[in-house]
Amino acid sequence: MSALSHKIDFAIIFSVKHANPNGDPLNGNRPRTDYDGFGEVTDVCLKRKIRDRLQTAGSSIFVQSDEKKTDGMPSLKHRAEAEAPIGLGKNAFKPSAENTKDKIAKRACEQWLDVRSFGQVFAFGKEADAAGVSIAIRGPVTIQSAFSVEPVSITSTQITKSVNGEGDGTKKGSDTMGMKHRVDSAIYVAYGAMTPQLADKTGFSDADADSIKAILPKLFEGDESSARPAGSMAVKKVIWWQHNSKAGQYSSANVHDLLLKLIDSWKEDNNEDKNLLNQIDNLKPDSESSKKLEIGNLKPEIIDGF
């Protein structure tokens, strides 16, 4: 399978309504914000959702979440040993004189889509033949944290939690107090890129890029929870710029800046989220707004959310 043949830049525009898109465990699980009050969803959180959607679509994923495991493996070490290439056994991902770092990295990239996409660090224990060894794989797919286009309003609600006491369960334990937090209404934007130079090293292909492209419009499907009720988070648009070469016609910074300027122009005309959402919904191929996302002969593909 040939590696990625074109540089790709992309952006994801998504809405949040009465949900906690990414709680901060160091701040009482309140929705993450920066110092200026803009909402944030970390790149780690977004990559977790991408992995989950790819896994649901049938791709082989190395870093699986506990609640979505499909193989029952208790750790990454056990998964690596269980999914070792046939004939190589559990030592396929263990360094040795014959098993060089390059061989291990190549096998891992061939085995798991998320490894050849995002990269991975394989750290080894203190065995005599592996002391101090770690293998770092640098992936071609990068995603930035998503930030809201306006400062977010956060509502905090006090709740009570009831549990059964110890013993036979007939005696109710004391109620305890807790808090739930939500973002009332906001629009977030995340930017990403796919770099062919790094794809050459991991084997990330055009087909892999298409797999990620296919799941981005439905990034939050199957991600429902108490903090994120069904329908409370939705991808509105995916903007996909495919360059005409591996080097690309323009830098990612210049390409991403096109959407930033377009959103700023919308904000100047509309001060209400509803109007801004209408502008996003009306962002269609060949529309006046879509032309502002073109630079030279680089035109974007605009994909509606699922």
Rank of each mutant, 00 (worst) to 15 (best):
R182G: 02
Y191W: 08
D66G: 02
S205Q: 10
D52N: 13
K90N: 10
L277A: 11
K69E: 05
I8C: 02
A84H: 12
Y188W: 00
K284M: 03
A207F: 05
G37N: 04
N91D: 13
K171N: 08
K101V: 12
L26F: 10
P31C: 04
S290C: 00
G222I: 04
W240Y: 10
N20R: 06
C109M: 04
D71S: 01
Q55R: 14
H78Q: 13
S156W: 04
F124P: 00
S75P: 00
T56I: 12
K126V: 04
L276I: 15
P85D: 10
D223M: 14
S185M: 08
P74N: 07
Q120T: 03
S245Y: 01
G58V: 06
A190C: 02
I263W: 04
I8V: 14
F93Y: 14
K299W: 02
T160C: 06
P151F: 03
K218H: 07
F124K: 08
L262S: 01
S117G: 10
N164D: 10
Y250I: 00
N20A: 06
I12W: 06
L293P: 01
K103Q: 12
D264A: 15
L198S: 05
D223F: 08
N297V: 09
T142P: 00
I86W: 04
T33M: 14
W241M: 00
N282L: 02
V163T: 10
K267R: 14
K103I: 13
F147C: 01
K90H: 09
V149M: 10
I12R: 08
T202N: 06
G173W: 02
K49Y: 13
E224I: 07
A146I: 09
T155H: 09
I303Y: 07
N244L: 05
F14H: 14
K201H: 03
K103V: 12
K47P: 03
G89Y: 10
A131R: 10
L259E: 04
G305E: 01
A207K: 15
A234Y: 00
D200C: 12
H181P: 05
Q111D: 00
L277C: 05
F204T: 07
Y191R: 12
A199G: 03
T142L: 05
K171H: 06
L88M: 15
K101F: 04
L4W: 01
S232W: 05
H6E: 11
M194N: 01
A128F: 08
S211L: 14
F10I: 08
C45H: 12
D264V: 09
S251F: 03
E40V: 15
D208N: 11
L259F: 09
I295M: 08
L283E: 02
T70E: 09
K274G: 03
Q55A: 11
N27E: 11
F93E: 12
A146R: 11
V152I: 15
K47V: 07
